[in-house]
Design a protein around this nucleic acid. Structure first.
Lengths: 112, 112
DNA sequence: GAACTAGATAACCAGATAGCTAAATGGTTG
DNA sequence: CAACCATTTAGCTATCTGGTTATCTAGTTC
């Protein structure tokens, strides 16, 4: 299933929206903590060091985006990552960052 | 080279920043147009339908991020994608979006 | 049902940013 | 060097959003 070319504004917006969800460090840290399995809001909040209200908002946003899902049990809400492709994305971005840093270091050397 | 766990705030910010660069539909459309090879600013601007000033700013931002590089020749500035991994990222995101849409459609059917 | 707890939501503020117009820069050509 | 051209930058506005505090909801326990 190839992408339309030129990319339509609508599809560009849909893809961009997903990137925006991932473009926030607190959310990436939450996803990282969730890599070990489901966790509660308060648990995540205390580990990250911010308010439960804030964490709840981030998780709700990611749930809307289809990245995490929620399971209620008693007083607690357990969140789990439903789209594990996000970890691949993060890994690939790290690869790019490393490659760019290396290239810049090399160009500094040859200019010197 | 594994990522540190838990993800440090600094690395989370670095990864998030790259996602933010991609989290803008106009930039994604520019990258799509650049998939065919290098193009000038005015060329890209007229194809997308916005001001050259705006396109120039977007391209400068992506150049800072190491995604595109610039080549000046006479009056023109030719931009080209230097980190082609961005196309992989977009493709993966499209895959996720499709999977999520399918899953939601399926859950609608079974609830009905 | 009253007190308590976990989580969600509302209202608000501060900072970031995409877009515009206008002005500046750098290169070319008469 | 003067006119011109493509690109960049500056200044501005409107919008969006991450974080906070305060309030509300829902489930538990006594």
């Amino acid at each position: 299933m190839p992408l339309p070319s030129p990319l339509t504004p609508e599809l560009a917006e849909a893809i961009a929206e997903r990137f925006r969800v991932l473009g926030e460090p607190t959310r990436l840290r939450l996803l990282d903590l969730l890599a070990g399995g489901e966790r509660t809001v308060g648990d995540l909040a205390s580990e990250i060091g911010c308010t439960t209200a804030n964490v709840s908002k981030h998780l709700a946003l990611m749930a809307d985006a289809g990245i995490v899902t929620r399971r209620r049990s008693g007083l607690h809400a357990y969140y789990v990552v439903s789209d594990t492709a996000v970890y691949e994305l993060c890994g690939q971005v790290c690869g790019s960052l490393r490659a760019i840093a290396d290239a810049r270091a090399a160009s500094l050397r040859e200019t010197a």
